[in-house]
Amino acid sequence: MKPHLLLIDALNLIRRIYAVDANQKHSNEEQLVLTCSERVAQACKKMLRITDATHAIAVFDGDKSWRYHFYEHYKHSRAPMPETLKSALHHFKSAIEETGIVVFEPINDEADDIIATLACKAADNKITSTIVSTDKGFLPYLNSEIHIYDYFKRQHLDEPGILERFGVDKNKLVDFWALAGDKTNDIPGVKGVGIKSAQQLVNNYTSINEALSDELLNSGLRKKLETNMDMYVISKQLVSLRTDINLGFSLKQLRLN
């Protein structure tokens, strides 16, 4: 059987399932956690069947990644994890492990960077992987070896869908977000540059430097870019996932029994 690596963005899956279950009637918090952890385990089993995976890992977030130190406002407006869920994460980890999937929680790195590193390393070795997440940050890495699956919409994401959603090709997404910003993660982008201007820039030029060298570039837009170039550089680093993390384990250790 050809190897296939399943990469689960664990908290992305858990928090969304929990948000739905928390709105249902439960006798107590313990029952809520039990029901929700069972649903997460069922979701993992279903994804194993859908992908026909031979290897699998569910990755959690470490504590305060480099982005929080690099930019102090990173995710500062995001609502904290509900305390009931936070104190019960060990139940979810156990539920996932019982499906045969390896659970990994780095010390400091974000799950997105770990998953991107694993997917790219696998692709370099001609091994196909499927990332299960609704996080748009993975979209620039979509290719013939790296697939992305939205469990809640029950669909694999594709390049036409990316173009329809963002108005730019997948290989221009990082520059697009660096210009327009990303409110969900409190990434600033370039002040005064909105979605339409960002689309125009990345669709018409191969780089921001090329745009600035164009004498026909709108003077107002040029001034915004020149004045806020530092925030463009910062934002681009924030939205770019790392693919070079030293993981400390091999693909063999992720094989399903």
Rank of each mutant, 00 (worst) to 15 (best):
L163H: 13
T227S: 14
F166H: 06
E215S: 07
R15L: 06
V239F: 07
A10S: 10
A123H: 00
R49D: 13
S87Y: 00
A19D: 07
A43P: 05
A198M: 05
S250Y: 11
D150I: 02
V202G: 07
W177F: 07
V239S: 02
D182A: 13
G194E: 09
V33A: 00
E226V: 12
N23P: 01
F138N: 03
Y205I: 07
A41K: 13
D175H: 02
L11S: 02
V33W: 00
L179G: 03
H73A: 10
S37C: 12
V102Q: 13
W177S: 03
K136S: 13
Q155W: 05
V168A: 02
V239C: 07
Q200W: 12
G248R: 10
D150E: 06
I131N: 03
N218E: 12
E83A: 02
V190N: 04
E226A: 07
V174Q: 09
K153S: 00
G248V: 15
H69D: 08
N203V: 15
L201G: 00
H90E: 06
D150S: 03
L139G: 14
R15F: 09
L225S: 10
L34W: 11
V239E: 09
N246S: 04
I208E: 08
C44A: 14
L254V: 15
L89N: 00
K172E: 04
M47P: 07
G192S: 14
F70R: 00
V193Y: 08
V190R: 04
Y149P: 00
T184F: 05
E210P: 05
E30G: 09
P82H: 00
G194P: 09
P3L: 12
L163N: 10
K64N: 11
E97S: 15
H55T: 14
N204Q: 13
I148Q: 08
A122F: 06
I234L: 10
D230I: 14
D109E: 06
W66K: 07
M81N: 05
T130L: 03
L179S: 06
L241D: 12
E97D: 12
T54S: 14
R16Q: 04
K46T: 13
Q237V: 07
N23T: 03
V59S: 04
L6I: 11
V239Q: 02
M47A: 13
Y74A: 10
A41L: 14
T184R: 08
T35E: 07
A123M: 12
T51G: 09
F104A: 15
L251F: 08
I146D: 01
K25R: 03
S77Q: 03
R154Q: 11
W66V: 08
